[in-house]
Design a protein around this nucleic acid. Structure first.
Length: 725
DNA sequence: GTTAGGG
DNA sequence: CCCTAAC
């Protein structure tokens, strides 16, 4: 693989594109929801919103995933009530808040749905915007940077940062710039026993006022490795900072940037999401396994200083990766992830909860295209947290809800003690409000031949994005740089409710699973131009290069478009894409496989782009919009079937639905099937637009008749021989 | 390309 | 509606 990569590099002159912090785009499903979304996004030019979507989606997914059967009903009801309000945020670089109950276990934080509270008054403008003056170079912060600013804590320095999180950390920012407030529904703790008696800690964090002053410096055992003129400090935390249980995770570089000057990522469009203002002291912490594995995610000024393709892995691992089949890898990854106690379940539950998911999807954040497919195939393989980082901000201001601030939370630290007063507060306000400004898509590096077409480039980028986003993400909670793994811990227990800790709270987008699917590519071929003559585009992440077969290009264009023109028309065409579609031969396949394998390595260190065939397919072939049959159609169908009989669906189609392009003979056949079923069940059990009983009766009659005919035919067939004998 | 049937 | 096997 390396070999291939190398030679390829040598032979092909490539253009390197690096994308940083893409705000998460949206899905490319053309379903109803997608369309709504499109409409919705029409006016949306702010990429930032995408991040919002992503976050919401992730949260939503997680929410579902985590649902406990016992609590599911509650949750679902909440879900219904809750909605993601994107519109409000669209134009704005407004952070949204997440309100979490103290009781909520840590992981729950990520699972909230954000509900907008209208009562919110506009907060003060977010001061902490990063200026991009520093440079365009600065876009290297793909991985987050998350700082929590607490009014009370802004000046406080973080004493220790242990980072065991994944590469992407959503930052928590104390900004109250958002005029909209999103409150997350508090979820019921899955395990009742874990509930702590919380003090009333409704903690409203964040204050715009403090931003200027809030300095969060990383201190502790970190050693300064590098300091650039911009004040970025790269800290090599090595293993010390790694607390990953997951081996793979360990290698993922984690970066924390702290903004001393409290300049935070702004929601501003113009602002490079990745850039920190000059004034900021950005501290990058690279988590590395060993010296060799250094792979920084952050590339301050100079481009990718630490990009190393594959070297990051020890030989044994490499070997393993190279040799192993994808599925094997996937399994492994699953296991690994499971150690975290989430992945598997998540995947499954996500799929299972799809229904609810859609239900709650008012916000149109539909990411989940076919969850099932996605998860089955590639979800496992997703990219590491390399995806995006987000900012969470606390709003310190006493907004309507923020009755209790850090101070109270401090008190609440004693779990045992709950005074009456507290209880009163608790009942209503024991919430920790978090405002997550955005999640960013981490830096992406794409290498593509000069000869590639723009369309290819677009697709490539899109694919990369899709892979990252679609692969399945989960949210990690990081406190003081330390990843909180115990999902059952309450916020209170964890200290999130406490002001002392709020400043160190961060969220990271992590890969839900870790491996890529092997065959990912095959389906992708159609898109591609990938043929023998066309050089294949490569997409890789900074530290761990991920190579995507060009065949995977499916969505790339979306991304680009997004970048350039915003969301509308994301999905578009191949027309400008590369022409030659077919992959020449096995060799190509082999290559692609190899290419695909690369990611695995990357997984170790960072994010991997999962390439899966299904996902691609999903992309291309969207599920058709559901179009319930009208009574008139049913009647026409019944009539046609009465005449023609079952088993001649093509004829039925031609005779009765010739002009209904959207009705295929398969559809008619299916409809008939359902009609028969409907006719047999009790009226109470029927759903949807009621079909006149008369028609149903005819259905049964016709069905019986034709079934009989069919049987007769068969008997004839069989009997004939007998007779002959 | 159609059918049939499971999902 | 999707997906597939079978024809």
């Amino acid at each position: 693989m390396e070999h291939f990569f190398f030679s390829h590099m040598m032979l092909q002159k490539r253009l390197d594109y690096s994308f940083n912090g893409y705000q998460v785009p949206t899905k490319r499903r053309a379903t109803r929801s997608a369309r709504r979304k499109a409409t919705f996004q029409k006016g949306l030019e702010d990429n930032q919103m995408c991040a919002f979507d992503l976050l919401a989606t992730v949260a939503d997914n997680l929410l579902h995933e985590k649902q406990n059967p016992s609590t599911s009903s509650d949750i679902s009801s909440e879900m219904d009530k809750a909605c993601f309000v994107k519109e409000e945020c669209l134009n704005a670089n407004k952070p949204f808040k997440v309100e979490v109950s103290d009781e909520t276990s840590c992981d729950r934080i990520c699972q909230h749905q954000f509900v907008k509270e209208e009562g919110l008054d506009a907060n003060k403008p977010f001061k902490a915007e990063l200026s991009d003056e520093g440079s365009s170079d600065r876009k290297c912060f793909s991985n987050i940077s998350a700082q929590v600013y607490n009014q009370n804590c802004c000046l406080k320095e973080l004493s220790q940062h242990e980072i065991d999180g994944h590469s992407c950390i959503a930052s928590i920012v104390t900004s109250s710039s958002c005029s909209e407030r999103f409150t997350g529904e508090t979820l019921v703790d899955e395990k009742g026993q874990h509930r702590m008696k919380n003090l009333p800690s409704k903690v409203e964090l964040g204050s715009s006022g403090c931003l200027e002053n809030s300095g969060c410096n990383l201190t502790g055992d970190v050693s300064k490795v590098n300091d650039d003129k911009f004040g970025k400090v790269t800290i090599d935390t090595r293993n010390r900072l790694c607390c990953f249980e997951d081996p793979l995770d360990e290698k993922s570089p984690t970066m924390i940037s702290s903004c001393r000057n409290s300049k935070l990522y702004g929601y501003d469009n113009n602002m490079p999401q990745n850039s920190l203002s000059k004034g900021c002291d950005n501290v990058l912490i690279d988590n590395r396994d060993d010296d060799e594995n250094f792979s920084g995610c952050a590339h301050p000024i100079t481009k990718i200083k630490s990009f190393r393709p594959i070297t990051c892995i020890d030989d044994r691992k490499k070997k393993k990766i190279l040799s192993s089949k994808y599925h094997k890898v996937v399994q492994e990854s699953k296991q690994d992830t499971q150690s975290n106690g989430v992945v598997e379940e998540n995947l499954k539950s996500v799929y299972n909860s799809r229904k609810n998911y859609y239900k709650s999807q008012r916000s149109q954040m539909n990411i989940p295209f076919k969850k099932r497919k996605l998860f089955n195939c590639s979800s496992d393989a997703n990219s590491n947290g390399y995806n995006k980082s987000g900012d969470t901000s606390y709003s310190p201001k006493n907004n309507t809800n923020q009755s209790v601030s850090c101070s109270s939370s401090g008190t609440s630290k004693d779990q045992g003690t709950s005074s009456v007063g507290h209880s009163a507060l608790r009942s209503k306000d024991s919430r920790v409000k978090l405002r997550i400004k955005s999640f960013k898509v981490p830096e992406l590096f794409i290498e593509i031949p000069e000869t590639a077409t723009i369309g290819t480039l677009k697709r490539t980028v899109m694919e990369a994005m899709t892979t990252v986003l679609g692969g399945g993400l989960r949210v990690g909670v990081i406190l003081h740089g330390k990843k909180i793994r115990d999902d059952n811990k309450t916020l209170l227990q964890t200290g999130i409710s406490h002001d002392n800790h709020l400043d160190a709270l961060g969220f990271a987008l992590e890969p839900n699973s870790s491996k890529n699917q092997p065959h990912a590519c095959s389906a992708i071929n159609s898109l591609g131009s990938a043929s023998g003559d066309m050089p294949q585009p490569l997409i890789r992440y900074p530290s761990s290069p991920v190579i995507i077969d060009k065949r995977i290009q499916g969505f790339s264009n979306m991304l680009v478009k997004h970048q350039v023109t915003g969301f509308s028309n994301l999905v578009e065409s191949d027309h400008d894409s590369t022409p030659s579609p077919i992959i020449s031969g096995e060799k190509k396949m082999t290559d692609s496989k190899e290419l695909i394998t690369v990611p695995e390595i990357g997984m170790e260190a960072l994010a991997v782009l999962p390439v899966h065939q299904k996902s691609k397919r999903t992309e291309n072939a969207q599920r058709r919009i559901r179009r319930p049959f009208s009574v008139a159609e049913v009647e026409a169908l019944v009539q046609a079937v009465e005449k023609l009989g079952t088993g001649r669906w093509r004829d039925v189609k031609l005779s009765a639905f010739e002009n209904a392009k959207h009705r295929t003979y398969v559809d008619l056949k299916d409809k008939w099937k359902t009609l028969v079923h409907t006719a047999r069940i009790s009226p109470q059990q029927r759903r949807g637009e009621p079909v006149p009983q008369e028609l149903l009766d005819r259905v049964l009659i016709a069905h019986a008749y034709w079934s009989q005919q069919q049987t007769k035919q068969q008997l004839k067939h069989h009997s004939k021989p007998c007779l002959l004998l």
